[in-house]
């Protein structure tokens, strides 16, 4: 009885675990079978990323969490949930969270809504100058958000080209028409940055659509719209769900655009202000922790409980 108890004690479990780790290290160091050599190759391939994840990912993240519950401004000491109480209790931060969510949700829906016909056109038809179109559509991906926002200013700002043309045509004052630094301007800037990402995901989904089934539907009397509704859409639905999840996540992370168009204070902009202006490191830590937890859980649960066909 006592022997069995000893076998199940935490210490023996720890010893068994340590023995397994040592065994695994020995196997990787001195592989004998092809399977073991394969393990070694996998370990070698994953090692650089694992080190990076540890040094540049897990450590800083744990430090951010630690800072968020610290009782001192510039040192990680003690334990306090004051920063979280501020975040969840202060109406200002609740407003920031609400603005972040509605702006990102709205721009995600519009971006994916625009990306579906773009991906459909690119994948289903032989378009003249398709390479150029693809380059144009994907161009904003390579632009920093701050440049995208600057372009919106150039187009729709007080001295913007579109504003000037609209003013000339309507006889209004440019300042009455300019909307670059308003919420609609920010909305357009977000959509501009998010559409290419959504399109990229959806194009991958479209490539797997069974075009023979679409042709079968058409031959059976379905119009192009009915074919899309009954045959294509069910096939691309997992891709649309994936695009919604990943584009939403992208939207939450946008910051550069907000540096130029600060018309709405969203989570990332407020986080920057906490660090740069308010110097409230605990609240900044709490904001970063909440952001990470929300984004991570949203993505994992979204992909787990929907039919989304994209990776995290």
């Amino acid at each position: 009885m006592s022997d069995r108890h000893a076998e199940n004690s935490p210490l023996s479990t720890l010893r068994a675990l340590a023995a397994r780790v040592v065994g695994a290290v020995e196997t990787v160091a001195n592989p004998v079978t092809e399977r073991e050599r394969e393990y070694r190759r996998i370990v070698a391939l994953c090692a650089p990323f694992s080190v990076l994840l540890l040094v540049a990912g897990l450590y800083p993240l744990s430090e951010v969490v630690r800072i968020s519950v610290s009782t001192a401004q510039y040192r990680s000491v003690g334990f306090s949930l004051d920063a979280y109480a501020t975040l969840f209790g202060d109406p200002y931060y609740r407003r920031v969270a609400f603005d972040s969510l509605w702006l990102t949700t709205g721009t995600t829906l519009v971006s994916v809504g625009l990306a579906v016909p773009i991906a459909h056109a690119l994948e289903k038809y032989d378009l003249p100058g398709e390479d150029l179109l693809v380059t144009l559509v994907s161009f904003p991906i390579s632009l920093p958000g701050i440049v995208a926002a600057f372009m919106i200013l150039v187009l729709f700002g007080n001295n913007g080209v579109v504003t000037a043309v609209a003013a000339a045509l309507t006889g209004s004052r440019p300042t009455d028409l300019a909307f670059a630094v308003s919420v609609p301007g920010l909305f357009v800037a977000f959509v501009y940055s998010m559409v290419p990402r959504a399109t990229l995901i959806l194009r991958g989904t479209y490539a797997e659509v069974d075009s023979a089934a679409e042709e079968a539907a058409q031959a059976l009397g379905a119009t192009p719209f009915e074919t899309f509704r009954y045959v294509t859409l069910p096939q691309i639905r997992p891709g649309i769900t994936g695009a919604l999840i990943l584009t939403f996540r992208t939207g939450l992370a946008i910051f550069g655009t907000l540096v130029v168009i600060q018309t709405l204070v969203v989570w990332t902009l407020q986080l920057s202000r906490e660090l740069g202006v308010g110097y409230d490191v605990q609240v900044a830590g709490a904001m970063a922790t909440v952001y990470f937890a929300f984004t991570f859980l949203f993505t994992v649960l979204g992909l787990r409980y929907t039919s989304a066909e994209v990776g995290i």
């Binding site: 069974d210 023979a212 089934a213 042709e215 079968a216 539907a217 031959a219 059976l220 045959v231």
Partner: peptide
Amino acid sequence: NVGLVFQEYALFDN
């Protein structure tokens, strides 16, 4: 009004 039968069946999986 033509009926098509494909080599790869092309049935509607949904």
